[in-house]
Design a protein around this nucleic acid. Structure first.
Length: 276
DNA sequence: CAACCTGTTCGCCA
DNA sequence: ATGGCGAACAGGTT
């Protein structure tokens, strides 16, 4: 499910546990979701620690934990636990009551005194990472600006486009090293608003189209964060997403049937009248 | 029963 | 060395 705006909403679900201690940890340690992660360390380190804060970058989240009484024991006061979560295709974060136990798809469960923080992911295309130490984990640094940051500007976008000149623009919008957080529906939304056919090779885009692409990318991200990302409310009326998966879905602007095909390896919807 | 799915990664090929 | 593409991953839903 989750693209950048949904990820932001899921991240905030665990805010209910901020400042509270993790009493115990339950996890399905042998599962694919934890590939490359030492789950015994995760369970041992996180038990007894306090959830301090969280952040999201694109589709990735980072949760910061530490022991209580920071600073009391000198340098060791700076030791933190860092929990990285990617929700993949079917992941979700939610909060349950304190006595929640979960089923086979609830892979990571953090029990607090008054509630339980749950990560569920049936398909396990998501991922959990963990680090215990001083300073942010290496895997959290990406070198890629978030789309809403000033660093994400025209020169940066155009440099990335240039590196993938022969690929379909739809495929390039899905690349997390260029457009972090954009997924299938947001890519279609952006291209519809920018009036660009998804299968167009990047090198065929003119200056005006690249500037439309840039503006609509910023716009779709901003408005998605203000709706879905804020309270999971619907994106604005008139957006393509409302028609995208409907049988007989129509272009919100022209009312003609949407076209569909696989582009960049994903099902793609567009309006053949709007987009050229 | 078959096809499809809001994501990433790997191996193969140009 | 870099970039593009299709398959694989695992399970639910239509």
């Amino acid at each position: 499910m989750p693209e950048l705006a949904e990820v932001e909403w899921y991240r905030k679900q665990w805010d209910a546990g901020l400042g509270q201690r993790v009493e115990s940890v339950r996890l399905h340690g042998h599962k694919r979701l934890f590939r490359g992660t030492n789950t015994r360390t995760l369970r041992q380190c996180l038990s007894g620690q306090i959830l301090l804060s969280s952040a999201a970058r694109g589709k990735r989240m980072l949760f910061r934990f530490s022991a209580g009484n920071p600073g009391k024991s000198g340098a060791r006061g700076n030791v933190r636990s860092w929990l990285g979560i990617h929700l993949g295709m079917t992941g979700a974060l939610r909060v349950e009551s304190a006595n929640f136990t979960g089923d086979k798809h609830d892979h990571l469960i953090l029990h607090q005194a008054k509630r339980t923080l749950v990560l569920r992911d049936p398909r396990q295309f998501g991922r959990v990472q963990f680090r215990h130490g001083v300073g942010e984990p290496d895997w959290w640094r990406t070198g890629v600006p978030d789309i809403m940051e000033d660093m994400f500007d025209r020169p940066w976008q155009d440099r990335f486009l240039q590196r993938h000149a022969k690929a379909a623009i739809k495929a390039v919008l899905l690349m997390q090293h260029g457009f972090p957080g954009i997924g299938n529906w947001m890519a279609d939304e952006i291209l519809w608003r920018a009036k660009i056919l998804p299968a167009r090779p990047v090198c065929s885009l003119g200056e005006f189209e690249r500037s439309m692409l840039f503006r609509q990318t910023k716009f779709v991200v901003r408005r998605s964060l203000e709706t879905l990302g804020e309270d999971y409310s619907d994106p604005p009326r008139g957006w393509l997403i409302h028609e995208r998966w409907k049988r007989g879905g129509k272009c919100p602007k022209h009312g003609i049937g949407l076209s569909r095909a696989t582009v960049g390896g994903r099902t793609t919807a567009w309006c053949s009248k709007c987009q050229r």
